[in-house]
Structure formats: structure tokens, C-alpha cells
Design a protein around this nucleic acid. Structure first.
Length: 410
RNA sequence: GGGGAAAUACCCAAGUGGCCAAAGGGGGCAGACUGUAAAUCUGUUGUCUCAGACUUCGGUGGUUCGAAUCCACCUUUCCCCA
């Protein structure tokens, strides 16, 4: 059977947004093993859902026999990418950046096989931090036209809000990264989110100019909801891949609750389910679409947290919303028996579990009829919780329709 | 370097001496309707020992019985000129 070109796979699944030299690149990918890179700026101590998409692309590419380089932006983060934002990035210290980079590594390894040189991880701090300013300007700077840079999409909105010189340089640094990786590993292709387009073509042009060799760029669609919002944001902030920052249960629930309109997109971009299956699931009518959401939640959770955890999350969800099942992964707070001896005010309890951030909100929640304790609506803010409310040492709180929290006695 | 404008709650944005915990919108949360969806409608949205009290309008001082509102200085941002 003829091997499918990974280019076509990416295209069919809807990843590709923009490509340089489309025909040429497709042919190259079909012909030989290509080393490519995607950069990740360690601006936070965990990757999030937006990065997941990029990791999945790397995995698709690796499966097709290409060699990924996950480039940690230890150097570029010192400067800050102005693309896609209207304000300046917070400056991070070198220590913060390096510590974040370490955490990224662990998360990459879940999706990408770094054994036997099948994939590479590098950090641009290694070459960017020791650059000599004048040399850099003479070698790299000469190839950039400011006039042209100013017309780049990524600087457009910054022209109104203000752009500092340090950020303006980001593009040169990223272009230089590509050149460096080309020289070091023969890297021919840079991929990234669509907001990286300007930076990517800068690198492609630089290699073509300096080395007179062909280099390519490709961007993916940004993960957005049907109404154009960036996906992976909740009221509590980003959805993180680190289970300590976003619990596995919450992670599962995030996907389980995705809009109908976004199900197909997510399935095709964030899972490895075959496209026939994706289409079948996405076209389920009416409330059967929930099956697709379950599949999505399970698959994505499995990719990030492993099969066992995904199963537990699913069990927990079944237990809460359906019947039976294992409650292990439901968010839980432990309470000392001592603390309940004289009863505990319900408002204090929900604040201490983190279900609500303040007592004021707790009272409001109860007054509006939004709190349920063991399937019974709590109707008084002075309700006292006592030992009697625990069944087998368990007490189940529900905020609104679907936020559950378990309290167990120790 | 010179001139001008601005900083308000999660975000945008009104408010120019007491009636301001601060309009309006967005967002969030909850209720109804549902399919753990969307849309829609309703309520709510500083903190606390919620009757009442306390802390908020870039910062620090000042004027005043009383300041988000007036004054001084500081910080930051933007615009125009060089």
C-alpha cells in the first residue's frame, strides 16, 4: 500500500493554515525524512492546550518518519515575542525561564519519542545568549529590511499601541534560530501557530539568502472556538497540561463540555482517531453528539495523562452524571473528624474546599439556590454540616449543575 | 529636550466635592429551558461577624466637616513637536 504523505494528513485534518512553497514542500515530505522544528517559549511553568496542538503535529510528523526538534526558547523568552498581543510580555528572569523549560521537557516526552535521536530537544539560550551584538548585526541584521518588517502583520497592531526595540528584535532572533538549526541539524522546515507566520518566513528568507538553500515554513490553524475565542481558556485561566495546575478531572471535563460546533475540529486536531471516525462522531444527531464529546475527552486526556488516568476521569464523570462508577478522581477535600464535632457552617465549608472564592459568593450561591449537598438543595446560609451528613465518610457538594466536589473524613 | 492627554473594579468605560461600593456594556457565577451543548430570558457580580461595618477609583502627601472628583509631587502610558 502506498504510504500517505503526512502533508495530506495534516491538510485533511485541518491543521494547515499557511505554507511556503506548498508543492515543493509536499514533495519533499513525501520523498525523504525531513528535520523540522517548532519553538516553544517557556513563559509559564507548564504547557497548555495551545501547545498541545503543536505537539500533536510533531507526533504526526514523527510517525511519518520525520525528525522533530522541540526548540525551547530560553533565549528568545529573554526578549519576548510581540506577535499576537497588544501589550508587552512580562520579563522573566533567566532562572525562571530555565526552570520552566525543564518542566516542558517532561510534557513533550508524553507525545514525542526522543529515544535514539528520533527527536531532538534544544534550547536557543545556548547560542542566543552569547551572541555578540555587533557581529550579529553585521551577519544577520544586514539581511533585514526595516521597511519590510514594519509591514509585517505581527507588528501592525503594535504600531498603534507602541512597540519597544527589544521586541522588534524578536523576529531576527527567531530567524536566526532557524538558521542555526539548519546549520546544526539540517533543519529545513519550521512550523508553528499562525501567529508565527511573519517570524517563520523571516527565517525561511534568511536561510535562502545566507545559505542559498531551500527552507520551508508552515503554520497551523489556531485552536479557536467557533465564535473565534482562543480555546483552552476558562474563567480560572488556561487549561494546563500539568495535572497539578489543571486536575485530570477538570481537564477531562473541559473537553467533555466543549461546544457542539467545536467537536469535529477538536477531534480532528487533538486526537489520532481516523478521519472516518471523526466524521461519524461529529455528525451524530441531537444529544447523541455527547458520545462524540465523551470520545474527545477520553482521547485527549489519554494523550496527555495516560490511559489509566483518562479511564479514571471518565469513571468519575460517569459516577457523577450517570450512575455507579469510581469517584477517585473527583476533586476532593479531606476534613478532620475533629473539625466537625460541633458542626461546620456550610459557607465556611465551601470556601475551604475552594468551590467558591469568598464567603460573600458562597452566600450568594446558596441564596440563589445553586448549592446541593448530597442531592438536596441547601436553602439556608446558616446550615451546619455535621457527621450525619456523611455517608460512608463521604459528602458530595454540587455547585450549579456540574461542578462537583467531594469531602471525605479523615 | 519641548508641548498635550490620560491612569476607575476581571476587561472596556461613565462619573469632575456629599445622593458613589461607584452608571452602562462585556465577561463570570447562579436560576429557568436543555443534551454535562448552543441560543434565549431572569437574578447576581468588593470584603467581612452581611442588621451593620470596613477597604477600593495609579502612588504619596495636602485642602475640606466631607474627595474617584480640588491642589502638590511622584510613577507609568499614549499623542504631537525636536
Amino acid at each position: 500500500m502506498e504510504k500517505t504523505n503526512v502533508f495530506d494528513v495534516l491538510k485533511e485534518r485541518g491543521f494547515i493554515q499557511q505554507v511556503t512553497h506548498e508543492e515543493e514542500l509536499r514533495e519533499l515530505l513525501g520523498r525523504e525524512s525531513v528535520t523540522f522544528y517548532i519553538g516553544f517559549d517557556p513563559t509559564a511553568d507548564s504547557l497548555h492546550v495551545g501547545h498541545l496542538l503543536q505537539m500533536i503535529v510533531m507526533a504526526h510528523m514523527q510517525k511519518a518518519g520525520h525528525r522533530p526538534i522541540a526548540l525551547l526558547g530560553g533565549g528568545t523568552t529573554m526578549v519576548g515575542d510581540p506577535s499576537g498581543r497588544t501589550d508587552m510580555r512580562k520579563m522573566l528572569t533567566l532562572e525562571e525561564i530555565q526552570s520552566n523549560a525543564e518542566k516542558f521537557k517532561v510534557q513533550f516526552e508524553k507525545l514525542i519519542d526522543f529515544s535514539d535521536g528520533k527527536a531532538i530537544m534544544d534550547n536557543n539560550a545556548d547560542w542566543l545568549l552569547k551572541l555578540n551584538y555587533v557581529e550579529f548585526l553585521r551577519e544577520i541584521g544586514v539581511h533585514f529590511s526595516v521597511n519590510r518588517m514594519l509591514t509585517a502583520e505581527c507588528y501592525k497592531n503594535r504600531m498603534e499601541k507602541g512597540l519597544t526595540f527589544i521586541e522588534f528584535n524578536y523576529m531576527l532572533m527567531q530567524a536566526y534560530d532557524f538558521l542555526e538549526l539548519f546549520r546544526k541539524y539540517g533543519c529545513r522546515l519550521q512550523m508553528g501557530g499562525d501567529d508565527q507566520w511573519s517570524n517563520i518566513i523571516a527565517g525561511v528568507d534568511l536561510i535562502r539568502r545566507v545559505e542559498s538553500q531551500s527552507a520551508y515554513g508552515m503554520t497551523f490553524t489556531l485552536l479557536t472556538t467557533s465564535d473565534g475565542q482562543k480555546m483552552g481558556k476558562t474563567q480560572a485561566g488556561a487549561v494546563w497540561l500539568d495535572p497539578n495546575k489543571t486536575s485530570v478531572y477538570d481537564f477531562y471535563q473541559y473537553w467533555r463540555n466543549i461546544d457542539d460546533a467545536d467537536v469535529e475540529k477538536c477531534l480532528s486536531l487533538l486526537t489520532f482517531l481516523p478521519m472516518e471516525e471523526v466524521r461519524r462522531l461529529a455528525s451524530l444527531p441531537g444529544n447523541e453528539i455527547n458520545e462524540a464529546k465523551k470520545a474527545l475527552a477520553y482521547e485527549v486526556t489519554k494523550l496527555v495523562h495516560g490511559e489509566e488516568e483518562a479511564q479514571k476521569a471518565q469513571d468519575a464523570a460517569e459516577a457523577l452524571f450517570g450512575k455507579g462508577g469510581n469517584l477517585d478522581l473527583v476533586p476532593t477535600t479531606e476534613l478532620e473528624k475533629e473539625e466537625l464535632k460541633n458542626g461546620m457552617n456550610i459557607v465556611d465549608l465551601i470556601v475551604s474546599t475552594g468551590l467558591v472564592p469568598s464567603k460573600g459568593e458562597g452566600r450568594r450561591l446558596i441564596n440563589q439556590g445553586g448549592l446541593t449537598l448530597n442531592d438536596e438543595k441547601v436553602d439556608a446560609i446558616d446550615f451546619m454540616v455535621t457527621m450525619k451528613d456523611f455517608k460512608d465518610g463521604n459528602l458530595m457538594l454540587k455547585k450549579g449543575k456540574k461542578t462537583y466536589h467531594r469531602v471525605v473524613l479523615r
